[in-house]
Design a protein around this nucleic acid. Structure first.
Lengths: 356, 356
DNA sequence: CGAGACCTGTTACACGTTTAAGTAGGCGGC
DNA sequence: GCCGCCTACTTAAACGTGTAACAGGTCTCG
């Protein structure tokens, strides 16, 4: 019933508590026979080290923290990525006997305040920072605290904190190549908040990938939210040369777009191909199901956690490339609409999806 | 830089550490002038209590745990409910300066093992148990440990552990009444795993609500998963008297059903009304958008956490009713198909949704 | 056979906090 | 003027671990 301490074991084994401590921690200073004795007794009594005592002694909390924003992180996208990511983090941490402490905050100021508190209270040994934004105030704040941290996102060069990043340029290239392979020439992108670093990077990566394929046009919409999806989609299709493929950033945005397209009588993928950046169950269940760029959120979480654990062990760590994205091809992408003129003719003119 | 302790403050204030402790904890034993002095110094040095030391002293971890199943809890439904729930729990706990520790496990055996470890290590003061099943082994295990816990789900009578429950009978009645109000007479239900306690309760509640409305029929399918949705839906509609409305348990199942219905040429809601038990972003974004039973996951989480906090304070707590469900009416429910014969005639024969 | 080296175990203290018990000094009351 | 009591503080111990420093005893080797 009552919790058993090393003192209890020491009494039973007729030795001092230090002998017990040495034995249980596999350190020299105690004979083989006594050690076995002690281990047996500890086992039979069901001893487990008291974490508070260990933490106090070692000045180590055996915990890491992760803070997410209440409104933001659960609104723009369905939360499956975050939960899978958390699962991965937790899975890695538990192998090192470290617990994950989560916390929700309304904004970055509150988040920084919590870091300060956690540090001063020695509540966590390190933190995982997600969704970095441009000129992120959290980064210098954490650096100043001297708190071990790993940033999830590509902040290479922008911050002294180690980052685990995914190659969005490569991902964008994959997406563009997939669409080009299907014959698309006018490819649009509808992106989320540009304050988010990954959005900014993806935007650049997308432009770069298009340029590499000698395709141009600035069919790029920024700062779109789920509510904007309808308006933006209509506007894109109303252009003189409407795109034949659109890459949406965020599953919810793409879903809203699908509804709009249905109302407009635009058939997916016959008239227009639709892609989503970052896969989710929603993409799988949509009609038509959505082709998406997929990252293994679970493995990503594990990698991030492993990186932080290494950092906590005192080793210096630098940036690390995370899991690579791949394309999950589904029903929403298909061959570009047939061209009006023969392919061989110099200039092509696609039968875009334009509003009828 | 270095963390500041009460000893540092004591030195600066030329008093003993106990005087500092008394002052900081607003306890008698120190004069008013000295108290102000100490508080000012503590403030200026940025002192925060070391959690490990406090925990050790008070034999209290100031943490509560919540374990979710790796496969299960994130598969059957989109995870938005869980994340919102976690947010609510966290929000309540943080007001009491208690942290939330999360952990993912593959099965109940592993979960019980973690409870044992947490208890023996004094890692958490209490736990929140979610998704109770029939003959849940976790409940007696936690009871045996003597660990404070709150169960999320209606285990009233089945367990000595306090529960926070939602009235599924009332919710089922709401749903059935909504459909009956639209003229539906043959209402089916497609439910998930009956091992889950809430599934079993909902099933009974559904039958009871139908019976109360003098409607019968056993249009009840159990143990359906997302993969089964297509087959089950086809089978229901192939009946001699097909239902005019179906209530699916789980958003993913309903989404799959929508796809099937589209393929079958069954129009929603003209030919068939569709409802979902437990709302999600997916329901909102589906086409047509899905009428659903909605619970405030955030408030539910807060309530559960508050209940556990009360329990931790030493007070005995009993069961507590959680937030009530309401209906979020959307586009997937509408008037029942018109009857073939005149309403006034004794027997009605609906033009069901049957397969064409 | 005695001096060190080595093995096994102990004692003592630290980590940062709380708190029971103890000790001055001042003050009032009889 | 002495006793007792209150105030304001200090000292000491405790929570459960870990570990440096030390103490016997045995072994080895010159």
């Amino acid at each position: 019933m009552a919790r058993v301490t090393i003192a209890d074991i020491a009494r039973r084994a007729n030795v001092s508590t230090s002998a017990v401590s040495y034995a249980l921690n596999d350190r020299p200073g105690v004979g083989e026979a006594t050690r076995r004795d002690i281990l047996a007794i500890a086992e039979s009594m069901g001893w487990r080290p008291n974490r508070a005592a260990r933490s106090l002694q070692a000045a180590r909390a055996n915990a890491v923290g992760l803070i997410f924003r209440r409104d933001k992180d659960s609104a723009e996208e369905t939360s499956s990525f975050l939960l899978r990511f958390l699962d991965g983090v937790e899975s890695e941490l538990s192998e090192h006997d470290i617990v994950l402490v989560v916390h929700a905050v309304p904004d970055h100021a509150a988040e920084i305040e919590v870091y300060r508190r956690w540090y001063a209270e020695s509540r966590v040994d390190g933190v995982i920072l997600i969704n970095p934004v441009v000129d992120d105030l959290r980064l210098p704040a954490v650096v100043k605290l001297g708190m071990p941290a790993v940033v999830v996102g590509d902040v290479r060069g922008h911050s002294p904190l180690p980052a685990v990043w995914t190659d969005d340029t490569e991902a964008a290239t994959l997406a563009v190549e997939h669409l080009i392979g299907l014959g698309h020439r006018r490819i649009a992108r509808v992106g989320g908040h540009v304050e988010l670093l990954h959005t900014r990077i993806r935007k650049a990566a997308f432009s770069k990938a298009l340029a590499a394929a000698r395709l141009g046009g600035d069919l790029n919409v920024d700062n779109a939210t789920e509510e904007d999806a309808e308006r933006v989609t209509r506007r894109l299709l109303a252009r003189k040369s409407p795109p034949t493929a659109i890459l949406y950033e965020g599953d919810t945005m793409a879903m809203r777009a699908l509804v709009t397209l249905r109302e407009l009588g635009v058939s997916v993928p016959k008239d227009l191909s639709v892609m989503v950046w970052d896969d989710s169950p929603l993409c799988r269940l949509a009609y038509p199901s959505l082709t998406a760029l997929r990252r293994d959120a679970f493995m990503y979480g594990r990698l991030v956690a492993a990186h932080l654990v290494t950092r906590l062990s005192g080793q210096a760590v630098t940036d690390r490339r995370g899991t690579v994205a791949e394309i999950q091809v589904r029903d929403s992408t298909g061959p570009a609409p047939v061209t009006v003129r023969d392919r061989k003719s110099g200039r092509q003119k696609d039968a875009g999806a334009g509003i009828r």
